[in-house]
Design a protein around this nucleic acid. Structure first.
Lengths: 345, 345
DNA sequence: AAATATGATGTTAGCGCTAACATGAATAGC
DNA sequence: GCTATTCATGTTAGCGCTAACATCATATTT
């Protein structure tokens, strides 16, 4: 009692009472840094020690506290992923590609959804920075100015996916402009002459607009103009059917509709079947994405397939390489696209 | 040099060099706990002080470090969410319901995917505990024994979704057994007498099996047996078409197929259209889920719709109430289901 | 006016882990 | 045999924040 250090009942923090590293260390008769090493770089610990520590971990039922580890190392194993929508299967498949790859390497995805709202993107970016994310995946190359500044100043790897161009850091995607051109070239080559482009929500979803621009430019080179039908609602089958009706009404000479996505195009096909409109004889339709449903309907849809899961996988592989300090061969990866010619054109 | 305390150049940690709470505190001339309060319970700070702190936050460009906060408070704002699959739209919609609700309250979802593998569930649970999650959402009531023990001992709120029954903590879902019975009653009432049930992956996806059991028991009450066709692959349109063929081959007297989900049933409808098989005259089909595609095909699918987004929303609301210490009216919420009678039966 | 309550802010001590450096033993080099 | 090198493990000091308690000023009560 000479120095009062014992402090009989000083303030107590709750402390989750579950076992910590030092409990394991005590049990294994090593220091806690050794336990930490067993967890993080097992090769740097002698095998006999490692086994003793692993036994102690099991015995005390230790569950690693990732939060403390992240704080101490200023690096979480979080990967921030920002997509514009979860209603669109495309992004789900990209997320699956990301998740499979990241999970295999011990990273956890933090998922953010902007609903095609650029301000939401900035908020999400700030939130994810606060979580000390190790890397960030975001959709598209266009960002609100404040958001772009934040991203540029962030010292960790970033990959912008889906589209190709002038990226902040890494870039994995495809040229939507070329995809639009490619499909329209197919339509012209097949003999269609009166084309209408139909899409939804083309303000927010500007990649659909890029495809339209490819379509429009190619038509311009052939001296044709490129009528465009737009809807504000998200794509669904009913909108596709509605589009077919509107085109037949408003542009009766049309012989092919270039849809912005397969949901719309499939909706048009199903509507045509229901109303005795022959596809492609009365009117041809084509889509974009390569969804299974488009390949299951009769007539089978002509579309452009993009390797969605591969985009996720490649993006994840690039980021893991960067995080682990390995070199990345190419900053920009063009995953390409494939024209699937079905029976609808 | 009497006590060596000065240590001219002691070890330095990297320290992310971005501004911290104390930078803000210095700028605003308050203590850091006051800044913390502005962030966490603004009402407990006088307005003039709060405004000064907020200005300082903007001035120094402070981004909150959630990791440090989580460690200090032993409570992250993470919600662990475990689903068996991301390929199935059902879970995507549930996740959307969860995410919308949680994001509005400042929680971040940690997403885990078991791929219908129960051991993966246990691993995910451990990982998520390590992230100090504030609550956990998991799919179904069946867990590997070790996982169930972990869950039971965990001191934070848990909700088991999709199915209804004997839950660990909270429970939001519907009775798949009753849904199966309901559909089969509809088939019998409509006059069908020779039924086959067809589903995929019914080991892992045992909720499809529960629906089959409802179907089987009702038929047993009518003195009929209940043939079952199973596939190991996940559901897709092709498997649905294949099922239709197999039933026509192996059970030629069959007048209705009860499919485990709408993907299969839609695949069967599309296959029938393609091959001139009349639905429901030659054979009736029905599904489960209420997917948009089932309502867009001709004939429109008879199915059972479940309120998937509502499951997510309600689960999230319950958890938020629990986390914030508010009472939860009922531990078990039956969201019910709705029979949608289409033209396929 | 003293006693008490209320409100706003501050002080202190960690949360559980890991970076950086330190130490000591075993091995290699000449 | 003595120093240099490698390997395995330990010591120390935080990472940036918040819980718990402490303090002080002001308002309210009696």
């Amino acid at each position: 009692m000479t120095d009062g250090r014992q402090s009989p009942e000083r303030r107590r923090r709750k402390g989750s009472d579950s076992p910590t590293l030092s409990d394991v260390a005590r049990e294994a008769e090593v220091s806690s840094i050794t336990v930490s090493r067993v967890l993080n770089s097992p090769d740097s610990v002698r095998e006999s020690t490692r086994r003793r520590v692993e036994a102690a971990i099991d015995k005390v039922g230790y569950v690693r506290n990732m939060v403390a580890g992240s704080l101490a190392s200023a690096n979480s194993r979080f990967i921030a992923v920002i997509v514009p929508s979860l209603s669109n299967v495309v992004f789900i498949e990209v997320i699956q590609g990301l998740q499979r790859t990241f999970e295999a390497h011990g990273y956890q995805i933090l998922l953010g959804n902007t609903d095609y709202n650029m301000e939401r993107e900035r908020e999400l970016v700030k939130t994810f920075f606060g979580w000390s994310s190790s890397a960030l995946v975001t959709t598209g190359l266009r960002h609100e100015p404040g958001c772009a500044d934040l991203l540029r100043q962030w010292p960790k790897p970033i990959v912008e996916i889906m589209e190709l161009g002038d990226a902040i850091d890494l870039n994995v995607g495809l040229s939507h402009y070329q995809a639009g051109r490619c499909m329209t070239r197919h339509l012209l080559d097949t003999g269609y002459r009166h084309l209408v482009y139909a899409g939804t929500h083309m303000g927010g979803n500007y990649r659909a607009r890029l495809r339209y621009e490819g379509h429009r430019d190619l038509l311009a080179e052939h001296g044709q103009d490129a009528p465009l039908l737009e809807w504000d609602d998200p794509s669904d089958f009913a909108v596709g059917g509605d589009a077919l009706e509107r085109v037949l009404d408003s542009y009766p000479t049309t012989d092919a509709i270039h849809f912005a996505d397969d949901i719309l195009a499939t909706g048009a096909v199903l509507h045509a079947v229901r109303h005795g409109i022959r596809v492609p004889e009365d009117i041809a339709v084509c889509g974009f994405t390569g969804l299974p449903i488009g390949q299951a309907v009769t007539p089978r849809l002509t579309t452009i397939a993009s390797p969605r899961e591969a985009i996720g996988r490649i993006a994840a592989e690039q980021l893991i390489a960067r995080i682990e300090g390995r070199p990345v061969e190419q900053d920009r990866v063009d995953v390409g696209f494939e024209l699937l010619v079905g029976d609808s054109t």
